[in-house]
Design a protein around this nucleic acid. Structure first.
Lengths: 353, 353
DNA sequence: TTGAAAGCGCTAACAT
DNA sequence: ATGTTAGCGCTTTCAA
């Protein structure tokens, strides 16, 4: 293939502008101590020759790599991709992350890592050694994995923990799951619901717990009981079916259910259908995530929107500025919103009108 | 932040194993001329120290970058992400591309580029200069953009053109759109349909044309007319509504329609509903792409599945081996399949049974 | 404010 | 079969 070299290097620019390599380097990196006219001349040469620095060379000489690494759980991500259920978590990450990176001349690299694996550390160390990223974004369940966080802290690489509020190294960031759950619960209470069931996520996701907290707190505030109204699922469709069945087969069944994921919500919808319960007349339903499918179910689902793109965008910004500005010591909160659709109504309401 | 260096370098390994740098390098790259026992000893040191080569350094010294760049159209991709309609083209690309890359110790970098822009070339040149990828994957409409293909040919970077059969530089790859359209058309003919309408994609996508070709050829073979049965859309929902309306408001309206995208198919579904046409009793509908939403519409849609993951996977394989093996001179075909669901039936069939 | 020299980690080319 | 040498393109010293 013949070794491919950089077509235009800093040398060409230096020669063209009649200055030293160093001066060109200074202009590229916006460093001080360059006379405006000098800077202008160099910039002209850069533009003329279409010069772009090689990130490999930049990284080699000990500076930044201009790379931000985003890490997702391998197993779950691949399962989502293969099942083609419309989960667009990755897309929203890329949307927020890539655009913000581009603004600052960075690139985002997306990688998969096994959490449930004794050689997470090897895998991660390899990715770091190969890529030398300037910052890393951790998503659940990585965000709370001490094997990962301690490794990054030790390697002194700035990182963000999405969906984590635990104190410790790295920037803790949350989409305010508790607040979102409160929003959803209050919405149902305002509609007149008294028995509101909750289908929670698995215990290894911290966010699952916060959502329960928000629901329970709001119920308590309203003087409503939560006894026997909370079931656990694993975020998947089947687990939603099982949980919904347990909730709806009670003698005094709930008139509304909040599911901690869209998949579990569609599972609940399925159970309601099989029990001849009309949604929303007999059962109001709120789901979490607001992935594409909530628009296409019958009825469409009222859902909590998780601001994934906005959160990742913020994370990138903080990571790029790590070192310049101080890192936030408190968890960074990007709040979600409730999107009302056709699956919620007053209890016993007939028809849509 | 303090300059971060590689923690374990080739030097450490060489020292530990008591050999020269070059020998270590040979082991890393699986090169010949290393005695097995030597190789074993070096490998032991690599494992012991947890050494991983820095791709920056590898790239610097003129060898591979172990990076494959996948390029999508910026405008359309961002629009898809923001509209959250469940289009999972990007996800399927990553599924096929990242996993195959990982098998070979490569990484896939995903980037967005504006096609409809006079400085495509600048943008692309910048990405290449910064990243120095070993191979590039082009997707429609980039695959047929001469500004892009000529630049890559000149830079002598191996690349694949997904959705292109035009001869020229780069590996042409197709998901057999014509064949898929034949499949869909034949399926409808077999069910007894005679008037089969077609909603095509925009002219700047070559695949749009092939799909028409497949439909028309199959209709011709069956001795059926295509007169006034083909409308153009832009792959989006609204354009599907407009096209379907034109088709269905004819006096002798088609009993079946093939839409060139899932979005246009749901648009057609909407029109059918508004005209009180039952799908599939009054109108059979086949869509293209098989994105997640086709499972959630009412009825679920019979659709042509585009093997995106498989195609990208194959592309990565070919690019990595470029130079070693000869590149295919003929277009590489990865065929799609027809997934039958509830939106197709015999014309005039009542009920599902 | 500018420039020169040294070296980052690795591999190609050339010894031996 | 193994080692030595000379860079790759850039930034970090340090000197002027």
């Amino acid at each position: 293939m013949g070794r491919r070299r950089q077509s235009v290097t800093i040398k060409h620019v230096a020669a063209d502008a009649g200055v030293s390599l160093q001066t060109v380097s200074r202009v590229i990196n916006n460093e001080p101590n360059v006379r405006p006219e000098m800077k202008e001349r160099v910039q002209a040469s850069i533009d003329k020759l279409g010069y772009v620095p090689s990130i490999a060379a930049q990284r080699m000489s000990g500076s930044r790599s201009y790379l931000i690494l985003a890490l997702n759980d391998r197993e779950r991500t691949i399962a989502d991709w293969q099942s083609r259920q419309g989960t667009d978590w990755v897309d929203q990450m890329l949307l927020g992350g890539m655009l913000k990176c581009a603004e600052h001349g960075y690139r985002m690299i997306f990688e998969l890592v096994d959490t449930h694996n004794d050689h997470v550390q090897c895998e991660l160390r390899a990715a770091i050694a190969a890529l030398q990223p300037d910052g890393i974004i951790l998503t659940p369940p990585h965000s709370e994995n001490p094997l990962i966080t301690s490794l990054l802290a030790e390697a002194r690489i700035p990182f963000a923990r999405i969906g984590s509020v635990t104190p410790g190294p790295g920037i803790a960031m949350t989409m305010d799951d508790e607040g979102s759950a409160r929003l959803a619960t209050q919405h149902l209470i305002d509609l007149g619901h008294r028995r509101i069931g909750f289908i929670a996520g698995p215990t290894d996701y911290a966010v699952a717990g916060w959502r329960i907290d928000g629901w329970r707190a709001t119920m308590d505030d309203a003087g409503l009981s939560t006894e026997g109204l909370c079931e656990r699922g694993d975020f998947g469709f089947e687990s939603g079916v099982v949980a919904a069945r347990k909730l709806l087969e009670q003698t005094d069944r709930p008139t509304a259910i909040i599911a901690s994921s869209d998949q579990m919500a569609t599972g609940t919808l399925e159970v309601a259908r099989s029990m001849n319960l009309d949604v929303p007349a007999d059962l109001s339903l709120v789901s979490f995530d607001n992935t594409p499918i909530v628009r296409f179910t019958e009825p469409s689902l009222t859902a909590v929107d998780q601001p994934i793109a906005a959160t990742i965008s913020r994370a990138v910004e903080l990571l790029i500025n790590a070192g310049k500005k101080d890192l936030p010591s408190e968890p960074v909160v990007v709040s979600g919103t409730l999107v009302e659709r056709a699956s919620t109504a007053r209890p016993g309401a007939n028809g849509v009108g």
